[in-house]
Amino acid sequence: MSDAARFPPGALFDLDGTLLDSAPDMLATVNRMLGSRGRAPVTLSDIRPVVSRGARAMASVAFPELDADGVAALVPEFLAVYGEELGRHSRPFDGVEAMLAALEAAGTRWGIVTNKPEGLAQRILPQLGWQDRCAVLIGGDTLAERKPHPLPLLHAAEAIGLAPAACVYVGDDARDIIAARAAGMPSIVALWGYRLETDDPVAWQGDVMVEQPARLLAPAAWPVPA
């Protein structure tokens, strides 16, 4: 079997913290919100660990005095400001473009399954030149469920014409690996992504843990799909 034949038939990715280093966009968003209130900015190191956990988690870091209801009330403002900052500061992680090109050369169909609202995810694809390359995009509001529920992964596999077991899901959060396992899909833990110091990626029980996207240029680094 050739190396190229060993790439999976399908590869599905989380977006923020896996394909895209979007933390700088998120930082600009929360600092605009803080600045409008006359408050001091936070730093990238403050916000980076929670980027994969969504708007509420980032608002909680920026406004630690707020309870859950207060944080939830900030989400519409966060999304509005983030919509203006979208793609202005973010970029693919080093090695991602080469990895995607290698998958495409091998005939692998790849797509994105993210908890980011679909409209925002769709907007960023043209900025990256991925709009005609990404075979499927499922956002957090595309379906009735979002990760860690397996439905988005199952739907994405169906959309690209593959069985879930023929795809590999790559993500940087426990929710990604939980969703993949529930979908019957092999998984890769993206250790280059966003996580708290208290997170234990080993405990997520992904099939493979990878330190950098460039490692996935080697077909043998991917778990073997069924």
Rank of each mutant, 00 (worst) to 15 (best):
G17R: 00
F78A: 04
A218R: 15
A220W: 08
I177M: 02
L103F: 07
R133F: 11
A182F: 10
N115P: 09
V224M: 05
A214V: 14
L151C: 06
A182C: 08
A40L: 14
A11I: 02
P150I: 03
A80L: 15
V50K: 08
C167R: 00
R91T: 11
A68S: 15
P148L: 02
A159Q: 15
F93A: 07
L162T: 00
R123P: 03
T29K: 02
S90N: 08
P64N: 08
E84P: 04
L79E: 15
A166M: 03
A180F: 09
L86T: 04
V170Q: 05
R133M: 09
M209S: 12
S187H: 08
A159R: 15
T29I: 00
D94V: 15
A5L: 06
D46G: 12
P8L: 13
P148I: 02
F63N: 05
W192V: 00
I178D: 15
V30H: 07
P164D: 13
A157I: 06
R39V: 06
H89F: 11
A166G: 02
G87L: 04
I178K: 12
T198G: 11
E118C: 07
P213A: 15
V71G: 05
P41H: 01
V208M: 07
E145C: 11
M99I: 08
T114G: 06
L151K: 09
L143T: 00
A59T: 15
D199T: 13
D132P: 09
V202C: 11
A165L: 09
D172E: 01
L27V: 05
S45M: 10
D141P: 10
A165D: 12
A221H: 06
A174T: 13
V51L: 01
A174H: 12
S2K: 05
A163E: 15
G184W: 09
A62R: 05
A40D: 14
E158C: 11
V50N: 13
R133G: 12
G107E: 00
V42K: 04
M26Y: 06
P9E: 06
E65L: 06
G83I: 04
Y194K: 04
S90F: 00
A73T: 13
G35Y: 01
A106C: 00
A62G: 08
A98C: 03
A165K: 11
